[in-house]
Simulated assay, not measured.
Amino acid sequence: MENDKKITELEKEITRLHGEIDELKNNYKKQSMEVGQLVFENEDLDFEIRKLKKENSELKLENEELKLFKKEVETSKSWKIKSLLK
């Protein structure tokens, strides 16, 4: 009788432990999926950052070219004459 009670208690403990294991497995799977999504988001953001850095450097070059052109225009004789007449 005492052994039957112990066996029943052990079976309940085994069932409870199986439930905990299943819950831990499900949590692990969920976390794995979240990590995978974060990895893909990170790759997308890295791509966007590279694209923006390239665009930024192109705009800097264009800005420098425009500054040089402005300087060239302002140093021309006709610009000087026009600015004197204003």
Rank of each mutant, 00 (worst) to 15 (best):
M1A: 11
E2Q: 12
E2P: 02
N3H: 08
N3K: 11
D4V: 01
D4T: 05
K6M: 06
I7C: 00
T8N: 15
E9G: 00
E9Y: 02
L10K: 06
L10P: 00
K12C: 10
E13N: 07
T15Y: 12
R16P: 00
L17P: 00
H18I: 08
G19P: 00
G19Y: 02
D22F: 05
D22R: 11
L24W: 03
K25D: 07
N27I: 08
Y28M: 09
K29H: 10
K29A: 12
K29C: 03
Q31S: 13
S32N: 15
M33G: 05
E34N: 09
E34D: 11
E34W: 02
V35G: 00
V35W: 01
G36L: 03
G36S: 09
Q37H: 09
L38N: 15
L38W: 06
V39W: 02
V39R: 10
V39G: 01
V39Y: 06
F40S: 14
E41P: 00
N42L: 14
D44N: 10
D44L: 09
E48A: 12
E48L: 09
R50N: 15
L52G: 03
L52K: 10
E55R: 14
S57K: 14
S57M: 13
E58N: 13
L61G: 04
L61P: 00
L61V: 03
E62L: 11
N63K: 05
N63R: 09
N63E: 12
E65R: 10
L66A: 01
L66W: 01
K67V: 08
K67C: 04
K67N: 14
L68Q: 04
K70E: 12
K70I: 04
K70W: 03
K71V: 05
K71E: 15
E72W: 04
E74C: 06
E74R: 07
S76L: 06
S76K: 05
S76G: 06
K77Y: 15
K77H: 12
S78M: 10
S78H: 06
W79E: 07
W79G: 01
K80Y: 03
K82R: 14
K82Y: 09
K82W: 04
S83W: 11
L84S: 11
L85D: 02
L85I: 04
L85H: 04
